[in-house]
Each structure stands twice: as structure tokens, then as C-alpha cells.
Design a protein around this nucleic acid. Structure first.
Lengths: 203, 203
DNA sequence: ATCTAAACAATACGATCGTATCGCCAAAAA
DNA sequence: TTTTTGGCGATACGATCGTATTGTTTAGAT
């Protein structure tokens, strides 16, 4: 066999270049030639690693998903309780607007394809629903105040985080202000401000 | 003088076709030929009404702004008090995800250009800040509960509405669920649930 | 009725698009 | 050392891109 290269790593590298482009100009802005130039490789090489533009976009969508998941995972690595975990997850989403706008914008680009492409929609819905379940579980585990429905509250928190991320991205507010808004909201849904009441329901 | 046509109306009509395309494929997906086909006119006509692609996109951005403003204005037309006005404004934003996904997605597409294009950024920031001020004023006029900062709460409400709109668009939740989440949150920031306390500060 | 200028269609141009195909090179198997 | 084969670059193709330049129609002023 001839020389061997880490196939998956090269694909991911090229896909990341594609994400950078689609964050700028949308999915239609991802052209093979531009991706090759952005990744610093030849046009033929992109063809060698991807069967076509559709394959490139599909791979890019999965890489995007992994990058965001990694970003969030790293943020909650040192969290000890459900309350802090919940806070760090939401904060990580908000911080995408400041520290990783490419991921946020590329996500928006793929969101557009959601309305027509069932595959992208499934990817989006599956990921979104999983995040929603996790957040709802964290809300329940964090000891919610009476009258708080974890499912509905998870929708509110997730929506709030996503909306704040956009606000941070355009510079409407700073990350610190967004964090304060987030903390203020979290403070309202938790039982007592300083204590973790509900001993059951793990994160 | 030869035959006269409503220049602005034709431009707006073509721009709306462009918005439909850029909601699907992003700003790079807006080509003169495709716009002509989408609008049902000849390619030369698009050239006649727009100096170039940049002019088309600029006009489309302004039309988008007007469309959203019109959507919101119609929603609050029959509102009587600041509380109902505030609720209808936020609900109108959320409903974009269900009733006018094109406006929402096209907005996301232009949001991407915000990071590089100062003109688009100014347009976005100006509009966003105006909405924020209006919402903050509505919060203040609606009689906020003690400890509620209208400015911060406006950021929270606007972020929540935008995030929920995305959630509704992808089908994570229905408009009714989003409306319930919104009402639940509004109920928390208002003083007494049924009364409009603060008599000053107009909307 | 004629003229004029705007509305509109059609074509042409080079550049870039996506895809297919070819050829070279290097490294591992023989 | 020879052979093999995947990594990789280069080129070619028709289609479409944005733009420029034409030409044709038509309504209103003269």
C-alpha cells in the first residue's frame, strides 16, 4: 500500500475551511475552488476527499455539530453540580457569539436548509431535542422553584441562550451583560438562591 | 416621457424574490439570473432596476427590514396597553418562525455579513438597538416588578423571542408552546398579574 | 403624427462554477 | 528492485455566474 494519511483528519480540516466560507456567504458560497483555497490545498485534493459538493456539505454539517459539542463539553468539564453545569452549558452557547462566531453563523446557514432538506432537518432536530432533554434534566436536577416546568423552562433557557448569542455576535450586548441576564433568569427558576434542594435526579 | 412604472414598487418586488432565494441558500445564492427567474422577469430587467448585485443585496436588506417592521406593526395595531403591546411585539417576532420563515432566514443570512460589512452591521445594529429601546420602554411602562431592570429585561425578552423563533422554525416547539413560555416569562417580570401599575412612561 | 426616453428583452463576454479525467509521485508490498 | 496503489496536482468540459452592450417596444410630450 502507498503512503497513508489520516483520512478523517484531512476531511475534517477541509470541512472546517468549508464552514468558514459558509459562515460568510451561506451554503451557496461554499464552492470547491474556494474551499481548496481557504484550506490551502489544491482543488483536486478536495475532490479526492469528497465525492461532490453535497458530500462536502454533509460532512461539514457533522463537523459543525462535533465542534459545538466539543465547545460545550469543554465548558462544563470542571462543573460539579447541576446548577453550575446548567449555567456553563448556557453560557457556552452564548459565548459562541463572541468566541466562535463561525460555528454560530454556519449553524444559521444550515438552519436555512432545514426547511427543504429532510436529512439536515433530522440532524438539526435530533441535536436540538437532545440538548433540550439535557437542559430539562439539569433544570429538574438543579432544584427548580415551585411552579417551574422543566420542559417549558428548558425551551425558554435554550431559546434565551440562542437569542443572546446572536445579540452578542452583532455586538448588541457584551458577553458579561448576556451572562448577567442569564444568571438573573436562572436565579428566578431555582428554589433558594444559594442551596441545591432536590437531592435526586442526576445530571 | 415614455411609459412610467412605479419604480420603487418594482424594485421591492424583485428584492422580495431575492429575499426568498437568500433565505434558501444564503447571500451567495442570490444570483441575478435566479432572481429574475424567481421574480418572473427577464434577466435584463433586474439589471435595469439594480446597478449590480451589491445594489440588489442592499435594497433587499432594506426591504427585509421594512417587511419585518410591517409584520410587527400589524400585530400591535389593536393593542391598547403597554403590557399587551409588549406581548404582541414579542409574539410577532416568535411567529416569524412559523408564518414568515423567509424573513427570519434572510435575516440570518444578512446577520452573517454583519461581521465583515460595516454598512450591514450599522443597519442591523441600528434596527436592533431601536427595538431594544422600544421593548425596554414597554417593560418600564408595563409596570415591572421590583428589582426588574428594563434595559436588561429587554435584552432577555428580545433574546428569548429571537431564540424561540428559531425553535419554532425548526419545529422544536409549536407557536402555542412558545407563546406560553413567553407569557410565563412576562408574568414573572410584571408587578401584579392583572393590573397596569405605572401610569407614566408612554410606549 | 413624430419624437424621445424609459421599460424591457436579448445577446456576448470573461470568469468561475461542479465534475470528470488524466498523469505524476512516493511509499509500502512483492 | 520492481510493482502496485493511494495521495495529489493539472487540465478540460459544459453550465452558470456578473456585467456590458445591444436592440426593440411603448407611452407621453411636442
Amino acid at each position: 500500500m502507498p503512503k497513508q494519511v489520516d483520512h478523517a483528519a484531512r476531511r475534517a480540516e477541509i470541512a472546517r475551511a468549508a464552514l468558514r466560507l459558509c459562515a460568510r456567504d451561506g451554503l451557496a458560497g461554499v464552492s470547491i475552488g474556494q474551499v481548496a483555497q481557504e484550506a490551502g490545498v489544491s482543488k483536486g485534493l478536495v475532490q479526492h476527499y469528497f465525492a461532490g459538493k453535497a458530500d462536502l456539505l454533509r460532512a461539514s454539517a457533522h463537523v459543525l455539530r462535533e465542534e459545538i459539542a466539543r465547545h460545550v463539553s469543554e465548558a462544563v468539564r470542571d462543573a460539579d453540580g447541576p446548577r453550575e453545569t446548567l449555567r456553563l452549558v448556557l453560557l457556552a452557547i452564548v459565548e459562541l457569539g463572541a468566541h466562535a462566531p463561525v460555528l454560530l453563523l454556519a449553524g444559521h446557514a444550515f438552519l436555512a436548509r432545514t426547511v427543504a432538506d429532510p436529512e439536515v432537518r433530522d440532524l438539526y432536530r435530533t441535536g436540538g431535542d437532545a440538548v433540550h432533554r439535557d437542559i430539562a434534566a439539569l433544570v429538574a436536577a438543579a432544584g427548580p422553584a415551585p411552579g417551574v416546568d422543566p420542559g417549558a423552562e428548558a425551551h425558554a433557557l435554550l431559546g434565551l441562550a440562542r437569542g443572546l448569542a446572536d445579540g452578542v455576535l452583532v455586538g448588541e450586548l457584551a458577553v458579561e451583560e448576556a451572562a448577567a441576564v442569564l444568571d438573573h433568569h436562572l436565579g428566578r427558576i431555582h428554589a433558594e438562591p444559594g442551596r441545591a434542594p432536590s437531592p435526586d435526579v442526576p445530571a
